[in-house]
């Protein structure tokens, strides 16, 4: 199985109070296609930074970021944006649905940006909404929905354009236990059905246990964690 995501010697530091702090200090990682990886770590340990680098939202100080065989860190701004738009799906902790768009419009947005606005796209979005159990709320605005419902819509939005990679940043951080479990179930099954590669940054051991592999990000480096056999996928 070839690697969808490959990180080689990744360094990233930030200016904090006049001093530079290394958040990532030579991170190496290979994520095979269709597999899932959990990133655990304290707040500020660099999990989100790592996701942003993979998604092309940020660039490393040093090192290489490969996604589907292409050097993302060498791409220009526009190329990274287009690559992200077409091949990456994002799920955020705070859902981040656009308040001015309806549920259906939010889900359609990644394809709208590609000017793919035909019947087929609409059907696919509706099918995904049905899959996450919210087809009947297609015309509602996000502020009418609960947190769990909003995150399920965010899942649909992340997958509607069939990306190769889904990057989930604390997807259950703002949810209670039941809702968190439901979202994780959905996320797991949706990516498994599509063979999508998943990278999840999380505090939750529960969430980490559902992935093929797990790493702890500590002092800027990835440390492999042992998971109970047979729990993860891939």
């Amino acid at each position: 199985m070839s690697a969808t995501i490959e990180l080689r010697g990744l360094w990233r530091s930030f200016e904090e109070g006049g001093a530079r702090r290394d958040v990532l200090s030579g991170v190496d990682l290979e994520v095979p296609a269709g597999s899932s990886v959990a990133l655990l770590g304290r707040s500020g340990s660099g999990k989100s930074t790592l996701l942003h680098l993979v998604g092309g939202l940020d660039r490393p100080d040093r090192g290489e970021v490969w996604v589907e065989g292409r050097r993302v860190d060498l791409m220009g701004e526009r190329e990274r944006t287009l690559a992200r738009r077409r091949r990456v799906g994002f799920v955020f902790q705070s859902f981040d649905l656009l308040p001015t768009l309806t549920v259906l419009e939010n889900v359609l947005l990644p394809m709208e940006l590609e000017r793919r606005t035909g019947r087929a796209e609409r059907d696919r979005a509706m099918a995904l909404l049905a899959r996450v159990g919210l087809a009947d709320r297609a015309a509602a605005f996000p502020d009418r929905l609960s947190g769990g419902e909003q995150q399920r819509i965010a899942l649909a939005r992340a997958l509607v354009h069939e990306p190769a990679v889904v990057l989930a940043d604390e997807p259950t951080g703002n949810l209670d236990g039941d809702n968190a479990a439901r979202v994780l179930d959905l996320l797991g099954s949706l990516v498994a059905e599509r063979g999508t590669t998943l990278l999840v940054a999380t505090h939750s051991r529960e969430a980490a246990l559902r992935q093929s592999r797990a790493f702890e990000l500590a002092d800027g480096r990835l440390v492999p964690l042992e998971l109970a056999p047979g729990v993860g996928r891939g």
């Binding site: 526009r78 738009r85 994002f90 656009l98 947005l109």
Partner: peptide, 16 residues
Amino acid sequence: ARELAVLRALGLTPGQ
């Protein structure tokens, strides 16, 4: 800023 960043994360180009 956050909303615009999400749009950018979803693939909105600087021009858009």
